[in-house]
Design a protein around this nucleic acid. Sequence first.
DNA 1: CATTAGCACTCTAGCCTTGAGAGTGCTAAA
DNA 2: TTTAGCACTCTCAAGGCTAGAGTGCTAATG
Lengths: 341, 341
Amino acid sequence: MFEDRIHKILWAVVESYITSPDPVGSRFVTKKYEFNLSAATIRNTMADLEELGFLQQPHTSAGRIPTDKGYRFYVDYLSQRESAADDHLTNEIIGRLRVISNDINGLLEEASKMLSTFSHYLGVALSPRPEKTTFRGINLFAYREGSIMAVFLTDEGIVKNKVIRLDSGLTQRDLNRISDYLNSEFSGQTFDDIKARIVREMYREKILCDTLIAKAIRICEEAFSFDYGNVFISGLSEVLGLPDFSDLQRIKEISRAIEDKHLIVKLLDALSHSEGVQVVIGSENPAAEMKKFSLVLSSYKEGARPIGTIGIIGPTRMDYLRAITIVDATARFITRVLSER
Amino acid sequence: MFEDRIHKILWAVVESYITSPDPVGSRFVTKKYEFNLSAATIRNTMADLEELGFLQQPHTSAGRIPTDKGYRFYVDYLSQRESAADDHLTNEIIGRLRVISNDINGLLEEASKMLSTFSHYLGVALSPRPEKTTFRGINLFAYREGSIMAVFLTDEGIVKNKVIRLDSGLTQRDLNRISDYLNSEFSGQTFDDIKARIVREMYREKILCDTLIAKAIRICEEAFSFDYGNVFISGLSEVLGLPDFSDLQRIKEISRAIEDKHLIVKLLDALSHSEGVQVVIGSENPAAEMKKFSLVLSSYKEGARPIGTIGIIGPTRMDYLRAITIVDATARFITRVLSER
DNA sequence: CATTAGCACTCTAGCCTTGAGAGTGCTAAA
DNA sequence: TTTAGCACTCTCAAGGCTAGAGTGCTAATG
């Protein structure tokens, strides 16, 4: 498995600690893993590992626990060997998700619940990043005096609505004409593309000064500027059962993270660019509030384009193998559902 | 204020306990409230109150704390005297809410946050009960093979979308005709009314057997059957700071309540029928999971019709006066916003 | 020279005791 | 009817003690 003894032992310590939250001592290692070495030798090696920054002691004369660097070693090794596909687990997840999969937000909400029930950590699912989705249709309604309600539909099956303030006496007929125009013109393009085009068009129309079209474009300008999408976070009660969250301080930290959805969105958006499942361990985390938690993330795609992110948030002492399997299976499944039409 | 000494003392105990979470003893009452009675007398009265079920002792030789019945006495008295309008608080709430108030879901989400930040308890806001809202318009899109996406707009400014499975080769033109028909036919009616009418229509159309209309009605039937609306719950981190939630057990209870939004919806829906602010204390609560918490609720209305509910969830040891003021102000404000068009 | 056995040392967690403090209930006096 | 007094009860925090686990170092071993 490993060549160096030092790696074997580090691996053993991490694995053991992940399995049960007791600091692991030298004697324990000799018993559970058969290295044919005495406790004293293990002790020396573990002292080395501590000096190298892979392990630490909660206090003198307790066993050792991994540092973030230690977990990193463990996870990197996990990733190296071909992903140990736990087919049983994968199938179970897919089986449960298959039941619903009607509209995408429902699917994502269910996915976040699934992620949490299977992992016993927090499950997170971000709806597709608005600017990456493909425009399908728009409807405009005269909503109140001076306000228009715009309702979008995207290819991904997302419905978004937005109130636009506009001081103009547009009738419902005008609005219908505008929306017909927009639908024929922009349907099938991503919002990113559309925005770029609008900027060009605006310039042209300013010169032509066609009032209706000009107004239409003004509406677009507002309508197509999006805030973040939905975030689905589940599993708080799941997490509270964990030994890692037995003290109030940590509970407060995690619950603050849950309430501050904006932070989560930014974090996940920032991190999820690379291919496949990504693991962020404790202090590797860019956000200060998250430096005590680990993230396991993956993007789901439409075709080849990654459009959104799902993942798991848990303590650094996480069952990474299981978490990676779960996240991977879920992301793949969502990707498949999105391609199936 | 009260005539009977026994009431005076009960009031004092409840108020004192609400102010700070220490069981209140007889000596403490004599000092803080000037009854010109000795501790011994207070003691006797308190023993009486315990026998009557208004107070209880956590253990022999601790002070007394109110039972749910004790709180009920306190709240009933609060309601009797004309609602002590804390104008300052009311204005502050309204001022903060005024900023947004664009679409109703945004308003409700903000309202739930406001309820929690002002009260330091959980803030809850239910979006209007779907069947009570007024239908404004519908749009149908051919979504996938065998599926139709229906998007509704209500007078209240809510957008709802629903995927309808239908194995029929309806073109987008057909769908447009159907939605035009529905819009002209049903616009301005509540979903309750519409449902009733559909049943009648269905019967007629079955006989006439006009395929398009028949299909339209089939769509309606599915489209107008709603699940619950949105629920917005905020303030978990707020609540965790409270002395009432210093032990893990209670935290788990409340977090389970937050995750089980369905329960909250059912509970609030079931309770909010009467006029004005309503207070449900601990064991008065119909749901077993909620018997340790108190609710302060009020409906918001459109015109005269109550269409949704907001409220506060907190421990039974709650600052009821403040909570009532906050809930009342918020509900009134939402009602006003909904009328302002 | 790497490995191991042995041993003294350290630190925690749990348990018990102890004493202070708070509050009660009861009785007898005012 | 109210009050003063007093013995009693119970909790909570602090201190002390022990058992247990694990370490680091040293000297012996193959």
